[in-house]
Design a protein around this nucleic acid. Structure first.
Length: 638
RNA sequence: GCUGGCGUAGCUCAAUUGGCAGAGCACCUCACUUGUAAUGAGGAUGUUGGGGGUUCAAUUCCUCUCGCCAGCUCCA
C-alpha cells in the first residue's frame, strides 16, 4: 500500500495509507474535530470528508464555525429540502437545482399540478426534521453520464437529464441520502444529522436557467444556520430592515406617495419630500459647478426623427412614450443626451474649448415593465443628475478619473459603501478595436487608481462602449445601480459632432455619459434606508421645531420661530394646546433633529432649550446662538 | 412582462360555512394650561380598489381590470 504525505495547516505531516479519508485523519487528531468537520479542503479544492485521498497534498478540515462550512451546510440543507419534497409529493414534483446563496439557499421545483403555498412550509419543515433526525449518510458516487441520464430518466427527472446532457462530461457525481439522489458537484456534509437549524422563507417563480422563454419553476427560498441563536439573529435583522424600508418611512415621514389614479411608478412628492429633493438638487448644482460643469436644460419632448437618428428608436422604443401633435411625432425623453448634443452642435467648437461638460438635472420617463417597479428605487418618471462630457480622445483618461473622484467625494459625504463593476465589450458591438481598447483602459486605470476593489463583467458593456457601474445597497442588501460612467464613440458619429483641432482639421470628439447619484428618486430611496429616516441636519427637510409648554409662551415662541425662519433654518412651530411630552413624541417620530422647548424659564431669559432627537438636551441658548450652531454643523454637509 | 400572493376608514388590522362592516391610532369638538416619547370625554369616518357576473342576499364565490408585495427576466 502506497504511503501518502498529508500536510496539515499547522505544518505537520501525517503519513497515511492511500485511500484514507479526511474524516479518519481528523479522528487521529481528535474525536471532537472529526465530529465538527463538515468537509475538507485538499490542495485548495473542497471535498467531502468521506472522500478517500489517493495522493499526497495539503489538507485542511472545514469545521462548523467557518463561513465555508455554513455554505456547505446550506447546500446540504437544500438537498434535504428537495428530499423532503420528493418524499411528500413524489413524481408530482421534479427537482431542478438548489444552490446556497447569501443568507440561505433555494431550490427550484417543477410541477404541473402541485402549487406550493406557504401552508406547505410547516409540512416540509417537519419532513426535513424527520429525515435529518434519521441521520442518513450522504454518499457521493461517480457515474458515467450515460448511466446517470438513464437513472434520472427512469425517475422522470427531465430537468436533471437536461442538465447532465448540457454538462457534456464523461462522468458526473451524484449524492445519495436514503432514497433520494441528486446530481451535484458537492461537497456535502457526511450525514443528514448535521443539519439541524433551517427555516423555509418564501416562494417565488423563477425561469428554468434564468431564461424567460423557458418554463416557470417554483422556487422555495429557505435558510439554514449552525444554531438557533444565529437563525434568530438573522430573522431579527430582516425585521429591522423592514422597519427601514423607504416605502414605509416615506409614508410615515410624509415624504412622498404613489397614486393608482396617477399611474404606477409616478412619484408624488409631498412638501417634505420635495424639500429633501430640492436640498439634494441644490447640492448637485453646487458640486457640479465647482468641478467645471455648465448647467444646461433641454426640452421634455423631441421629434421622433431625432430618436431614430440616435438609435434610441431602434433599441429603446419599447421603453419610450410617444405623442403626436399636428401630425408630427414626438418622443418623451428617456435620456438627456440628445439635447446636449444639439447644444454642442449649435456652433463650431475648437479643441481649445474641450472638454465641455454639460450638466442637467434631467427628468426622464421610461416605460419600465410593471413587475419591476419598486417604490422610489425603480420608477417610470425620474430625474437624473446627468452630464455629458465631450472631449478629445486624449482627455478621456483625465475626465474619467475626475468623475471617479466626484463619485468618491459624494459617497464619502453620504457615508455610503459601494461596489463597482467594469463592463467590457459585448459580442454585438460597434466601433474600432483601438477605440474600445483605449476606452476600456481609461476606465480600468481610473478604477485601479481609485484603490477600490471592483468586479469585471466581461462582455456586459453597452454596445457603443464600456462602462463603470457603481452600486449602492438598500436595507435588505439588494444592490441598486446609482453612478455610471460610459464611454461613447457612436453618438458623436451619428450626430456628426466635430471640433477643429490644432491642425485646422475637423476631428471627432468622444462623449462620456455619466451620472453621480443616478436618479434622484432612487438615490433618495437608498438614502432613506441608509439613514433609517433620521437624516443628517443638512438634509433634514425640517431641521427644528419650536414647542411651547403652555399658551403663555405662544407669542415668544412665534417670535423665535420667525427669527429662525428668517435666518434660513427649516423650522416648524407647534403651538397646539397639548402636553409637552405629546409634542415631543410627535416630533421624535417625525425624526426632526432639534426640538426647541420654550417654557416660562426660556421666555424670561430670552432663550430656547434644544433637545436632540437622540434624547440628549443642550443648555438653553439664545436663538442666534442656535442659528450659529446649525450653520456651523451643516457647513460641511453634516 | 412572467409566477405566486394580496387589496376592508388617512394608517395598522378584525369581520363563523355568503346573512346589519368593526377596533386602535390619526382627524374634529369640548374640558384640562400642561416642562422633555401618548390628558380625558364625546363625535364623524367606508360605493370593502374598479367594472361585470352567480345568488333572495357578495367584503366573502366566479370573471375582467387597476394597483401593491416577493421573486424571476429586463435595466443605454
Amino acid at each position: 500500500m502506497a504511503l501518502l504525505h498529508i500536510e496539515l495547516p499547522d505544518g505537520s505531516i501525517k503519513e497515511v495509507e492511500s485511500g484514507t479519508t479526511p474524516y479518519s485523519i481528523a479522528l487521529t487528531i481528535g474525536e471532537g474535530l472529526a465530529r465538527q468537520s463538515v468537509a475538507a479542503r485538499f490542495d485548495g479544492e473542497l471535498i467531502d470528508i468521506t472522500n478517500p485521498l489517493e495522493r499526497s497534498g495539503e489538507l485542511a478540515l472545514i469545521t462548523q464555525n467557518s463561513a465555508e462550512a455554513l455554505e456547505i451546510i446550506r447546500h446540504s440543507t437544500a438537498h434535504l429540502m428537495a428530499q423532503a419534497v420528493k418524499e411528500l409529493y413524489g413524481k408530482e414534483v421534479q427537482v431542478t437545482i438548489g444552490p446556497a446563496i447569501k443568507d440561505g439557499f433555494y431550490y427550484d421545483f417543477y410541477s404541473e399540478n402541485k402549487k406550493f403555498v406557504p401552508e406547505d412550509f410547516p409540512v416540509i419543515e417537519a419532513k426535513m426534521a424527520e429525515l435529518a433526525k434519521a441521520n442518513q449518510p450522504v454518499v457521493r458516487e461517480e457515474m458515467s453520464s450515460a448511466n446517470a441520464i438513464e437513472l434520472f430518466r427512469g425517475m422522470g427527472e427531465d430537468y436533471k437529464v437536461e442538465l447532465i446532457e448540457s454538462l457534456g462530461e464523461g462522468s458526473v457525481s451524484l449524492y445519495r441520502q436514503g432514497d433520494f439522489v441528486d446530481l451535484c458537484r458537492g461537497p456535502h456534509v457526511p450525514r443528514t444529522g448535521m443539519l439541524k437549524v433551517f427555516k423555509l422563507i418564501s416562494l417565488a417563480g423563477a425561469y428554468w436557467r434564468g431564461d424567460e422563454n423557458n418554463a416557470m419553476l417554483q422556487r422555495i427560498y429557505a435558510t439554514a444556520f449552525l444554531n438557533k441563536k444565529e437563525l434568530k439573529i438573522h430573522l431579527n435583522r430582516l425585521e429591522e430592515a423592514r422597519k427601514r424600508d423607504h416605502r414605509k418611512l416615506g409614508r410615515e415621514l410624509d415624504l412622498f406617495s404613489f397614486s393608482e389614479e396617477a399611474g404606477a411608478g409616478l412619484v408624488l412628492w409631498h412638501p417634505k419630500g420635495a424639500m429633501l429633493r430640492t436640498i439634494i438638487e441644490d447640492f448637485e448644482r453646487k458640486e457640479h459647478l465647482k468641478r467645471g460643469y455648465e448647467l444646461v436644460v433641454g426640452p421634455q419632448i423631441l421629434k421622433t426623427e431625432l430618436w431614430q437618428k440616435s438609435g434610441h428608436y431602434d433599441h429603446y422604443r419599447d421603453n419610450m412614450y410617444f405623442t403626436e401633435v399636428d401630425e408630427q411625432g414626438y418622443g418623451i425623453k428617456p435620456m438627456n443626451c440628445l439635447a446636449h448634443m444639439l447644444i454642442y452642435k449649435s456652433k463650431p467648437r475648437s479643441y481649445r474649448n474641450l472638454p465641455i461638460r454639460y450638466f442637467e438635472l434631467g427628468t426622464v420617463y421610461r416605460h419600465e415593465k410593471s413587475g419591476v417597479l419598486h417604490g422610489l428605487l425603480r420608477v417610470r418618471g425620474f430625474t437624473q443628475d446627468d452630464a455629458h462630457i465631450i472631449c478629445r480622445p486624449d482627455q478621456i483618461d483625465a475626465e474619467v478619473k475626475g468623475v471617479m473622484d466626484f463619485v468618491q467625494d459624494v459617497a464619502g459625504i453620504f457615508g455610503f459603501e459601494y461596489v463597482m463593476e467594469l463592463s467590457t465589450r459585448p459580442e454585438k458591438s460597434i466601433g474600432s478595436d483601438a477605440d474600445w481598447e483605449q476606452a476600456t483602459n481609461a476606465l480600468c486605470s481610473a478604477l485601479e487608481d481609485s484603490g477600490q476593489p471592483f468586479e469585471l463583467n466581461e462582455g456586459d458593456g453597452a454596445f457603443y462602449g464600456p462602462k463603470i457601474d457603481v452600486k449602492l445597497k438598500d436595507a435588505l442588501d439588494r444592490e441598486w445601480q446609482c453612478a455610471t460612467i460610459q464611454c461613447d464613440f457612436t453618438l458623436p458619429e451619428r450626430f456628426d459632432l466635430t471640433y477643429v483641432g490644432s491642425d485646422g482639421e475637423k476631428h471627432r470628439p468622444v462623449m462620456l455619459h455619466r451620472v453621480i447619484v443616478g436618479s434622484i428618486e432612487r438615490f433618495i430611496g437608498v438614502l432613506i434606508e441608509h439613514y433609517a429616516g433620521s437624516f443628517p441636519l443638512w438634509l433634514s427637510p425640517v431641521q427644528a421645531i419650536v414647542l411651547n409648554v403652555t399658551d403663555n409662551q405662544a407669542a415668544y415662541a412665534q417670535q423665535a420661530f420667525d427669527q429662525l425662519r428668517n435666518a434660513g433654518i427649516r423650522v416648524e412651530l407647534d403651538l397646539r394646546n397639548e402636553k409637552l411630552g405629546f409634542k415631543i413624541r410627535e416630533a421624535q417620530m417625525a425624526k426632526i433633529p432639534y426640538m426647541l422647548v420654550i417654557g416660562d424659564r426660556e421666555m424670561e431669559t430670552q432663550t430656547i432649550a434644544p433637545r436632540f432627537r437622540d434624547g440628549k438636551s443642550l443648555d438653553a441658548m439664545s436663538v442666534s446662538d442656535f442659528v450659529n450652531l446649525v450653520q456651523a454643523e451643516t457647513v460641511a454637509y453634516k
